[in-house]
Simulated assay, not measured.
Amino acid sequence: MSHLLEVNHLKINFKTYGGEVKAVRDVSFHVDKGEVLAIVGESGSGKSVTVQSIMGLIPTPPGIIKGGSIRFQGKELLRRPKKELRKVKGSKIGMIFQDPMTSLNPTMRVGKQIEEGLIIHQRLSKSEAKKRAIEMIKLVGIPNPEERYNQYPHEFSGGMRQRAMIAIALACNPELLIADEPTTALDVTIQAQVLELMKQIQEETKTSIILITHDLGVVAETAQRVIVMYGGMMVESGTVFDIFENPKHPYTWGLLNSIPNIDEEEKKQLEPIDGSPPDLFAPPKGCPFAPRCKYAMEVCLEEMPSEYEIDGGHVAKCWLNDPRAPKEEELVALGREEW
């Protein structure tokens, strides 16, 4: 079965006065129809740059696509003419940006911004587009849709602006929705409402979703598969069960150890990941996480690990998964807790 989206060996650099930043280094993944894929990792890991390349939003210059392929519904996106790419963006692929206040046009009424894609991509008349825009405002749970249609973004609260962004992204019934940190600037209550809305819409429309986040609680609640990124690379991927119950990369262990577990009776101190992310001007020749990893071996510093398949689709790029590496019980003896 062919995948809805296939990203293969993607490499993206940015030219700066200080040198060339290797932001995305040989990333590959796929998304199937109706699936929710989460991409997690700390700031600077390459999550947003990866998904922005799908939408053709990498500015060139300074951005350079050094290699790879992005295929949507079997058709290449990277080498497609801009005019053809515009037909895909907004109509077949929608995107919810991290900060709705900077993504919405402050000089346009919200209803007109929802209409824009409908008129361009679906060739609706102004009256049809207005009717559909009001329906979308209602669908995303904004009260008084007819009144809100004529208001400007500054008249909306933060949560309502994010709902308006979701309405714009979903207006043309896209096959794939990319949500880049959609709840970052919202308070906890509104976060829950927005995530519940996305989950409900995904179940009803069977839209595929790529969810970019650093919140593992959100991942556990919404996704089926997870990609863990670090230093511009994919270091582990698998199902939600694989990542939460049987993680196989020390960076994933670190992420899981740094979040509280309300189910545990005994309270324990959270464990931060010591150190800093790698310098992507001059990435290390070995594993990018090795300088921060308490289990690093000499080979980790000198050579990039292969992609080891743990079990049916669960893969990790870590030398500890090599048959010659120390066994799990030895790692536990060194201080790693059992999952």
Rank of each mutant, 00 (worst) to 15 (best):
L5N: 05
K11Y: 13
N13M: 00
K22C: 11
S28Q: 07
G34M: 06
A38H: 10
V40K: 04
V51W: 14
G56M: 13
P62S: 07
R71T: 13
Q73E: 15
G74D: 08
R79L: 05
R80K: 13
K83G: 09
E84A: 12
L85E: 07
K87I: 08
I93R: 01
T107I: 14
V110D: 04
G111T: 13
G117E: 03
I119F: 06
I119Y: 05
S125R: 09
S127L: 12
A129D: 07
R132L: 14
M136V: 01
P143N: 04
Y152I: 01
E155I: 08
R161H: 05
A164L: 13
I166H: 06
C172E: 03
P174W: 02
A179G: 04
L186I: 07
E196Y: 10
L197M: 07
K199V: 05
E203T: 09
E204N: 03
I209V: 14
I210D: 11
H214T: 06
G217P: 03
Q224T: 11
Q224Y: 12
I227Q: 08
G232H: 06
M233E: 15
M233A: 13
V240H: 07
D242R: 13
E245D: 12
L255I: 02
L256M: 09
P260L: 04
E264I: 15
E266P: 05
E266L: 12
E271G: 00
P284L: 13
A290E: 08
M297L: 11
P305C: 06
D311H: 15
G312C: 06
K317M: 13
C318N: 02
D322K: 03
A325C: 05
E330R: 12
